[in-house]
Nucleic acid binder design. Sequence first.
DNA 1: TATGAATGAGAATTCATTCAT
DNA 2: TATGAATGAATTCTCATTCAT
Lengths: 188, 188, 188, 188
Amino acid sequence: MHEKEKQLIEASIDLFAQEGFWNTPTARIAKHAGVATGTLFNYFPSKDVLIDAVYQQLKQEWLGHLMAGYPQAGTLKERVEHIWFRHIDWGLRFPVRYGLLNQLKLSNLVSQEAQQSQDAGLAFAYDMIVQGIAEGLLVDIDPAYLGQIFYAQLEAAVAYATEHTLTDMPLTRHITQGFEIFWKGVAL
Amino acid sequence: MHEKEKQLIEASIDLFAQEGFWNTPTARIAKHAGVATGTLFNYFPSKDVLIDAVYQQLKQEWLGHLMAGYPQAGTLKERVEHIWFRHIDWGLRFPVRYGLLNQLKLSNLVSQEAQQSQDAGLAFAYDMIVQGIAEGLLVDIDPAYLGQIFYAQLEAAVAYATEHTLTDMPLTRHITQGFEIFWKGVAL
Amino acid sequence: MHEKEKQLIEASIDLFAQEGFWNTPTARIAKHAGVATGTLFNYFPSKDVLIDAVYQQLKQEWLGHLMAGYPQAGTLKERVEHIWFRHIDWGLRFPVRYGLLNQLKLSNLVSQEAQQSQDAGLAFAYDMIVQGIAEGLLVDIDPAYLGQIFYAQLEAAVAYATEHTLTDMPLTRHITQGFEIFWKGVAL
Amino acid sequence: MHEKEKQLIEASIDLFAQEGFWNTPTARIAKHAGVATGTLFNYFPSKDVLIDAVYQQLKQEWLGHLMAGYPQAGTLKERVEHIWFRHIDWGLRFPVRYGLLNQLKLSNLVSQEAQQSQDAGLAFAYDMIVQGIAEGLLVDIDPAYLGQIFYAQLEAAVAYATEHTLTDMPLTRHITQGFEIFWKGVAL
DNA sequence: TATGAATGAGAATTCATTCAT
DNA sequence: TATGAATGAATTCTCATTCAT
């Protein structure tokens, strides 16, 4: 990826988070990125494509964060717990990016293709759940639903921690308690 | 509320859901509502205020749906289950309204005041949780967090049912299973 | 003149002076006058006509003020002096009306007919000048020009007194000095 | 100053004079200047700013005309006479610009800053008067007032000459006579 | 490839005027 | 005659996108 492409995406993240997608003209993005208005369109043929790129960038960063140190050989619970911790960690470390990614998901602004991009990278999570069910460790419902429940609880955990600006011990306890509630619900 | 006011809000709901807030010009809303462009501004001094009104309308409908038949005198579980069923019922019956309400919550377009309006009507849910914890029926964590977990699981349940267009028995089973997972997680 | 007609003109004067003609919607005038929007158009078929009426009202008040106590039988100088004092008096007593009248004159908003209305009432001033020239008391130039010079000096005198908020003795001296300068210039 | 900026100001002068500020949409100005509607706003962020620019342009042209050939070393009377002639000359040569400048002064549309711009360039006139009073050549009143009287008479002279379309000898005589009346009034 | 002035279709909002009650 | 909601043309300003340099 060209240097300017990165700058433009980074500038978009900054400004989208501050002002929203619709209140952020491409001209301001370009200026904030230190390039000319026209240059933006050399890299992204339209604002929509730029938004797609922002989405994919954030999703990739998130996925990368989730996967770092993933205990491939660990027990099911260890692996699920890893995701739990890493997701919350990302949300609290990069609240702007986290919030933006959530907004983009609901916004109808991201193209179908961009939405599905990198979903392959998420397959491991699906497999994890399928395997858990198969081994009789998790409740026997549609793995897709179980995944959604998992994600929903994660979002609640991040939202709560952010709103209450938890750190240190209280944060650790919150993360653990949240996980236990989830696990008690779905584990057999 | 004046008849035209209602028509305008209804038209907004239709169009916002189809095209998004920013792709829906006030002129189109007015036309869709069967009034002149200027008339919209007789009722709502700005597009922002109209959006607030749409939000409040939806929130009120949702709350009304939740409360209908609420078993004030029932057991804790009965009352929680009631909300569980009624929320999912609303989400499935009015998917457009449900989706729009969720989008509005994340959008930054709704004013502080509008966001907080009718929150008094939600107090009963908070009290329900507080009481449950006090009586040792629910896990002892911040009631606010428990509420968020509850809501998150509901959203997951609605999302899954909508995506898979569940009806009849499968739907009933899904609703029940979802509730059981939630309950197992938080009940002592 | 109907009571409401008066109220509407009075309201217009207030608001025009505060905000200017173009920033004063007819609806605001009506409200300020204590009548309904539509009522305004019962009395004045259009905003332009209302503006004409305002102009004529102010011009008439001004003329009436000038004429009050006019020393018909006095010497030329006495009569000119009378106008001098009365004009400045009006300008200082009713600065809002004075300013508005001046703006209207330059504005292109007043119809030809309204501009010329009551000009008959001003004939006495013209005659005064003509007579003064004929009697060899005033410099022999086109009386129309002499009238303009007279009026121009008056405007300067009012403007200066208003800007410096003169009162009492300083004001009296200012008025007298101004007149002397004028008179020295045009008297033979 | 950019070429298009000039064209836009020139177009504004044309149209403002014909139709008034409020009856001249920015779209018409742009078209008359031969640029797109949006282009106007590249040069002037708002219509108000454009009006300011028009005012400053006219004031500068006027000042430049006054100063051309100013007899710095001449006697007081020579210098005052120079201004007298040059002002009337400008008013008659550029009646549209002259009228517009006067309208703008009274209109409340020009910002404080624009009004005061170039006032430094007018200081020479004030000094001229102060000096005249100090040397006992002019009547001893507030120089500000004397300046206003001077200007008022000039306006009367231009107005009369324009209304009567004077040229050649009659014009010359009119200018001279006007000056003499003024001078007789204020000189000792 | 980079630039940034130019473009013009749209957007929100205003307001003189009308007209049914 | 009084009312004021309804109208919709008109206005200022924005901004994604283009393209000559």
